[in-house]
Simulated assay, not measured.
Amino acid sequence: MRDMPLDLTAVPSTDPIRAYRYRDGLYAADFITAAVVHLDFFTWLHANPSTKDGIAAHFGFTERPLDVLLTLCAANGFVENRDGTYHATPTAVEHLTSASPWNLKPYYASLKDRPIVKDYLQVLKTDKPANWGGDKAALDWHKAMETDEFSRSFTAAMDCRGIYLAQAMAKKVDLTGRKRLLDIGGGSGIYACSFCAHHPHLQATVLDQAPVDRIAQRCIDERGFHDRVSVATGNMFKDPLPADCDVHLFSNVLHDWGIAEVKELLAISYKALPAGGLLIIHDAFINADKTGPLPVAEYSSLLMHSTQGKCYSTQEYADLCREAGFKPGAYQDTAADRGFMVATK
C-alpha cells in the first residue's frame, strides 16, 4: 500500500468522477453485448412484452441478475416498465432488434467471445458470481478475501477509493451526541479514521476478519489514529458485535451480498445497537423506481458479475431496514455516484 496522507480532512482540487465511472462501469458493455448478441433480448421483448417472471421463465434467468439487467436497460433507455410489464423502448426497437434496418447486433458481434460476456450468460442462469476479474484460475471473491495476497490487494484498492469517499460522507452525517462508531467489514479502516478526523469527539472500532484485521491495524497506526480507532477481529455473520458502539456503519459492504445475507446483517446490527442507536448505510444506490442512475446501474453490473450482491435501490434498503426493526431516514448524495441512508433503532 502506498504512503498514506495523515490529513483526512484534505480534499482534492479536481473532480475524479470520470476516473471512478470508467472503473465502476467497466463490465456494463459486456452485459449489454450478452443481451444483444447471444440472447437477442430486445427482439424477443419487443414481440413479447412481459413481466419479470415471464422474462425469467422464457430465458431461464434467475431473479438477482435479471433485476440488474432490467435496471441497466432501463437506465440506458432500452426498456420501460409499464405497471409491471416490461417493453422495449423505441430506441431499442430501432437499434437493437433483428428486423430493424438500423439493427446494431452485427456491430456487437465481434465482442461476443469476450470472457466477461460469456460469464454473464452463466450468471444470469445460475445466480452464481463469476470469479473476480474473470480469472478462471482464481477463487471466488469471498473465498479470495481469506487469502493474504488478494486481501492486501483488494483492501488497498478500497482504501484509495475511501480516502475521497469517506470524507464526503463524514462531513454530512450528524453524529452529535454519538460516542463510538463500529465500522463493520471496515477493511483498512479508512472510513473509521475519516469519521474520527471530522468528528473530534468520536471513537471508532473496525471489525473485519483475518488477514484484513492486520492490514487495518497497520493502516490505522500509519495514519496516527491508534489512540482513537481500534480493531476487532471477527466474522460479521458469526461473531458477536462489540457492545459499546452506538453507531454502526456498513460502507460498501451490503452490496456484496444477496437479500438473505443483507437481512441477516441488518438483524445482527439491530440486535447489537442500543435503543436510539444509529445505522449508516454508505453505498451506490439505485433510485426507487429502478431507472438509474446510469453510472450506478453500470456499477451494479460489475458487482452482480463478481459478488453475490448488486446495488440496491433506496426503496429496497428502506424496506429491509423496516423489516429489521429500524426507522429509515432519507437518502443523501455524497460524491462519485455514492450516498448514504441512516436508520435509527
Rank of each mutant, 00 (worst) to 15 (best):
104 L>I: 06
110 S>M: 09
110 S>C: 10
111 L>S: 13
117 V>Q: 05
117 V>D: 02
119 D>Y: 01
119 D>C: 13
124 L>G: 03
129 P>D: 02
130 A>V: 05
131 N>A: 13
132 W>C: 03
132 W>P: 08
133 G>F: 11
134 G>C: 07
136 K>A: 15
137 A>K: 15
138 A>G: 03
140 D>E: 12
140 D>T: 09
141 W>S: 06
142 H>T: 07
143 K>C: 10
145 M>V: 08
145 M>Y: 09
147 T>Q: 10
149 E>Y: 11
150 F>M: 07
150 F>N: 03
151 S>N: 14
152 R>C: 09
153 S>C: 10
154 F>L: 15
155 T>N: 12
156 A>C: 01
157 A>Q: 12
158 M>K: 06
159 D>M: 12
163 I>K: 11
164 Y>G: 08
166 A>Q: 05
166 A>G: 14
166 A>V: 06
167 Q>H: 09
167 Q>T: 05
168 A>C: 12
169 M>F: 07
169 M>A: 13
170 A>M: 01
170 A>C: 02
173 V>Q: 03
173 V>I: 10
173 V>T: 03
177 G>P: 10
179 K>A: 14
181 L>G: 02
184 I>L: 10
186 G>Q: 03
186 G>N: 08
186 G>P: 02
187 G>F: 14
187 G>T: 13
188 S>T: 14
188 S>E: 10
190 I>R: 13
194 S>M: 09
200 P>W: 01
200 P>R: 04
201 H>A: 10
204 A>Y: 00
205 T>W: 00
210 A>L: 14
213 D>I: 05
213 D>Y: 06
217 Q>R: 15
219 C>A: 14
220 I>P: 00
220 I>C: 00
221 D>M: 08
221 D>C: 10
225 F>E: 05
225 F>G: 08
226 H>Y: 06
227 D>P: 02
228 R>N: 07
230 S>N: 11
231 V>C: 07
231 V>G: 07
231 V>K: 04
